[in-house]
Design a protein around this nucleic acid. Structure first.
Length: 312
DNA sequence: ACCCAGGCGGGCG
DNA sequence: CGCCCGCATGGG
């Protein structure tokens, strides 16, 4: 398989299917490791274990839990899954397909973002990295927490919130907590939210949760165009330009959104502007002109590559 | 001790 | 408008 000059890495898929687990075969290879290690909502709270050459990942949603296993390392096209809570084999498959964008036409994505050597090199290094499509409330909460923070701490805070406020569910062999909804968090006090390590963001979380519980229409955003949705999301404390773009990209699959954080800004100034300082606005204009409706995908590769390569 | 982290809101000129 | 500063917290 070859897309736009980039050779796909393939790996032998010879691990056995076993009882109680279902199988998904994808058209295009998916790099689970990169997808789960690139600062996306799922990456903030999923649990990862490695057992020999097989990786195990579990994650919770608002309605149940999913377990995945796959061959660790290179991108693969076969995933095994197991489900708990309010899922059936088919709804769980749907959740996983949607979550990891397994139905996305990656040939089309790569064709549209492979504009230059920087992106091509990022794609080669992290081939199969997907922009995940998470739940709107989950995405909102994760990225409100992300501001002026680092990924390690974000993970800890999201985990604390799940442990403190997530509804309990029995998976059969253990108890786990699902992702907490807005209504539950809206009832917590700012002081309680602070004990989860949220710091000055506690008031933003409280306000956001209350608004979502009282009618701020996260579902309605699905039918808005990019500009309309962005201003709607920014129309409340705690969500600015960058966080709004993250919510749109990873919570609503709006690939024209282009989140600009310190890593993206720094690395783009270096790679595309000869190390000159640029405004957020200038970078948005550049990204929109170069990658258009696929800008968010380009951003995810640039971001992940910058972090992994330590580009400063 | 000092610097930074997937930024944002508010205040000032 | 644009610019600049403070902000909770923990890890390097």
């Amino acid at each position: 398989m070859r897309f736009n000059g980039i050779k796909a890495i393939t790996v032998k898929q010879d691990y056995l299917k076993h009882d109680g687990w279902e199988e998904i075969t994808t058209k295009f290879p998916v790099n689970m490791k990169a997808s789960l290690d690139s600062g996306q909502p799922l990456a903030f709270h999923s649990v990862y274990n490695i057992d020999g050459s097989i990786a195990h990942v579990s994650y919770v949603t608002g309605r149940g839990a999913i377990e995945l296993e796959y061959v660790e390392g290179a991108p693969s096209t076969v995933l095994h899954y197991k489900y708990h809570g309010d899922y059936t084999a088919s709804s769980a498959k749907k959740e996983i397909m949607r979550r990891f964008g397994l139905g996305d036409n990656m040939a089309e994505v790569y064709k549209n973002i492979s504009t230059d050597s920087h992106i091509k090199s990022a794609i080669e290094r992290h081939y199969g990295l997907r922009v995940t499509h998470n739940e709107p409330w989950e995405t909102t909460l994760c990225f409100v927490i992300s501001q002026f923070n680092n990924i390690k701490r974000i993970k800890g805070i999201v985990r604390n919130l799940i442990n403190a406020y997530g509804p309990e569910m029995d998976t059969g062999d253990r108890l786990t907590r699902l992702f907490p909804d807005a209504e539950t968090l809206s009832k917590a006090s700012i002081a309680d939210l602070r004990t989860a390590g949220t710091g000055f963001r506690a008031k933003y979380i409280k306000n956001r949760a209350s608004a979502c519980a009282e009618g701020f229409d996260l579902d309605g955003v699905r039918s808005m165009d990019y500009g309309e949705a962005k201003s709607y999301l920014m129309d409340m404390d705690g969500v600015g330009d960058k966080v709004a773009d993250c919510i749109l990209l990873m919570g609503y699959k709006q690939w024209s959104a282009f989140p600009i954080d310190v890593w993206v800004k720094r690395s783009m100034e270096k790679l595309y502007f000869n190390s000159r300082k640029k405004s957020i606005e200038d970078i948005h204009e550049f990204a929109d002109g170069r990658w258009g409706d696929y800008a968010g995908y380009a951003q995810q590769y640039l971001f992940h590559n910058a972090r992994k390569a330590g580009l400063r």
